[in-house]
């Protein structure tokens, strides 16, 4: 047990940590939702991840994503892997620096009971969820978390085996900026769903 895990067992019992550490998390896209969910789940004890993202870090990502100014231009998945290893040096992260498409979907997320949908465009969110919904146990998705004015409350909805967090209506492509407070809040709610399901905690 490393120092991180020694700290974590002050809050979780051995059985809980063992359960969490046995589960692999798949993440589609390593932007505002994906990078924050990955960091929160690593801090919660999860140590097996598979992450797919095609991007490099842009200055416009720094307002909400888990990257720093001196990392602009670096590959997101490689940088996120480094970030997770900074939290838990024994975390195992399989990364793919590619664009996810339904045509290549079968190559990823084998043996992942949890798959996180963290894309930023509606068409990819829809395609990703539709593709994996009958290939995994649970999908956790973020939907509508970009707004400065006239904010709508975010909630959790369940459709089949898909848990969807957000206000379900605010579209970032319609002039609503994705800012850190709501994007991070949405990611935290998504991570909480994963933790609850992993530990068998009833979700209301």
């Amino acid at each position: 047990m490393n120092a991180f895990e020694e700290g974590l067992v002050r809050y979780l019992n051995g059985d809980q940590l063992k359960k969490i550490q046995s589960l692999k998390i798949g993440i589609g896209d390593a932007g505002g939702l994906g990078s924050n969910v990955a960091v929160i789940l690593t801090r919660s004890g999860f140590k097996h991840f598979e992450i797919v993202d095609q991007d490099v870090i842009d200055a416009s990502n720094l307002n909400r994503q888990q990257y720093f100014a001196d990392e602009i231009g670096a590959v997101k998945v490689e940088t996120l892997k480094k970030r997770l290893l900074q939290i838990n040096p024994e975390v195992e992260v399989l990364v793919h620096h590619v664009k996810w498409t339904p045509e290549t979907g079968t190559a990823y997320f084998h043996s992942c009971p949890f798959i996180i949908e963290a894309f930023d465009q509606a068409q990819w969110k829809f395609q990703f969820v539709q593709y994996y919904q009958n290939k995994t146990k649970w999908i956790i998705s973020g939907n509508g978390m970009a707004r400065l004015l006239e904010k709508k409350p975010m909630n959790l909805r369940k459709v089949g085996n898909v848990y969807i967090v957000g206000d379900h209506s605010t579209d970032s492509t319609q002039g609503h900026p994705p800012m850190a407070p709501r994007v991070t809040a949405c990611a935290a709610m998504m991570a909480e769903v994963v933790l609850d399901l992993a530990l068998g905690i009833k979700i209301n």
């Binding site: 896209d29 932007g31 505002g32 939702l33 994906g34 963290a118 894309f119 930023d120 465009q121 509606a122 068409q123 969110k125 829809f126 969820v129 998705s141 973020g142 939907n143 509508g144 978390m145 970009a146 909805r157 369940k158 459709v159 969807i164 957000g166 379900h168 209506s169 605010t170 579209d171 970032s172 492509t173 319609q174 609503h176 994705p178 994007v183």
Partner: peptide, 10 residues
């Protein structure tokens, strides 16, 4: 029936 319409943002 439950319907969720995906919107952009992430």
């Amino acid at each position: 029936v439950e319907l969720v319409n995906f919107v952009g943002g992430g």
